[in-house]
Computed example of a mutant assay.
Amino acid sequence: MSTDKELFDQMKESYAMNPRPDFVSNTELYLRKAAKKAKRKSSFQLISITSGGLIACIIAMSWLFTFNGKEFIHNTLISVKENTPSSIMNKNEPLIYIYHTHNHESFSSETLSKDPNKAFHHEKNISLVGSRFSQALDKRNISNIHEKGDVMGDLKQKGETYYQSYTVSRELLNNALENNESIKMAFDIHRDSHKRNATTTKINGKDYAKIVFIVSQSSPNYDENLNFAENLHYKVMELYPGLSRGVVIKSDTNKQSTYNQDLKDELVILEIGGFENTLEEEYRTVDALAEVIEEILKTEK
């Protein structure tokens, strides 16, 4: 049986400068048929490798000698891509957007404060939990963006009040959505002010920070966001019983009550744990949540 090199040399001798398109097409068709036939004879692997090598040689010759192989190569690459196992990781097409309207919210373990209204820190705060969530999604090949914008810092710099924080985070969210049409889900991650006994559960002997899903009834996307939050809740409880505290519907009538959920369906506030939870407990929870997101995305393919 001739080697790839020998066949390639023969091809160069016969078609030294300009192999005809029909030659390329017919040769490719012949090789594909040969590969199928060989598979039935349990010799698929050897023939496939040989065929793949010959096809690559033909493509290279056609492009190098005729400078007209762009379309053929493009189509071939598309064919290869279609037969490659798919991945939901593509940093140019993020599926998840993670941000923090109250990004300085922190924990007693980091601030030594026993007052949830004073447990704030400009570095050791809930944004570390968002970063861990982003990393957990990365490990599962789920593309995402973790927003690094300092909402609370911007408020202080502008001399605005705490209650205007959703106006600042709205700008970040809107910018992310406009520049990344691929974003499917968005999470505004906070920590709660409830005591530890209400925000903690034990799973397999380890403490986890419980999750609350918050939806605004004032948003025009209320139905979609409620359905999204409920799906998350049920999937969390299926995989990690006791980890979710449920879905909370906010029905305030003031403008801020939309929590910017009018900008996007499949957007919810996540309150993960409370000020008495530790970062380690928070990390366990977002690791689990990444698994939940992966399962949901699989069912939607």
Rank of each mutant, 00 (worst) to 15 (best):
M1H: 09
S2V: 02
S2D: 06
D4W: 11
D4L: 14
E6M: 01
L7W: 11
L7H: 08
M11Y: 14
Y15A: 15
A16E: 12
N18R: 11
N18W: 07
P19D: 06
D22L: 03
F23E: 09
V24F: 13
V24T: 09
S25Y: 10
N26S: 14
N26L: 06
N26H: 12
E28N: 13
A34L: 11
A35E: 08
S42C: 05
Q45H: 08
L46Q: 15
L46F: 12
L46C: 12
L46D: 14
I47P: 02
S51P: 02
G53T: 05
C57P: 01
I58V: 15
F67Q: 12
F67G: 11
I73M: 06
I73C: 07
E82I: 07
N83H: 11
S86T: 06
S86R: 05
M89K: 07
K91I: 13
P94D: 03
Y97M: 11
H100Y: 10
E105F: 08
F107T: 05
E110T: 12
P116A: 13
P116Y: 11
N125R: 04
N125G: 05
S127I: 00
S127H: 03
S127K: 05
L128A: 06
N141C: 01
S143C: 00
S143W: 00
N144A: 13
I145Y: 07
H146K: 11
E147P: 01
E147F: 07
M152V: 14
K156E: 06
K156Y: 10
K158Q: 04
E160K: 15
Y163C: 12
T167S: 12
R170P: 03
E171L: 02
N175L: 13
A176H: 13
L177T: 03
N180T: 03
E181T: 13
K184L: 14
M185N: 00
M185Y: 03
F187R: 02
D188R: 04
D192W: 02
R196I: 08
T199D: 04
T200H: 09
T201N: 00
K202H: 07
K206D: 11
Y208R: 01
A209R: 01
I211E: 02
S216E: 02
S218C: 03
S219H: 08
Y222D: 09
Y222T: 10
D223S: 15
N225R: 08
N231D: 15
N231T: 15
Y234K: 15
V236F: 13
M237F: 09
E238L: 03
R245L: 13
V248Q: 09
I249C: 10
I249E: 15
T253S: 12
N254V: 06
D262H: 15
D262K: 10
K264S: 13
V268M: 00
I272K: 02
I272A: 07
T278N: 03
L279N: 07
L279T: 06
E281A: 10
E281W: 05
E282N: 13
L289C: 08
A290D: 01
A290K: 03
V292R: 00
V292G: 01
E294W: 08
E294F: 13
I296K: 05
K298L: 01
T299R: 11
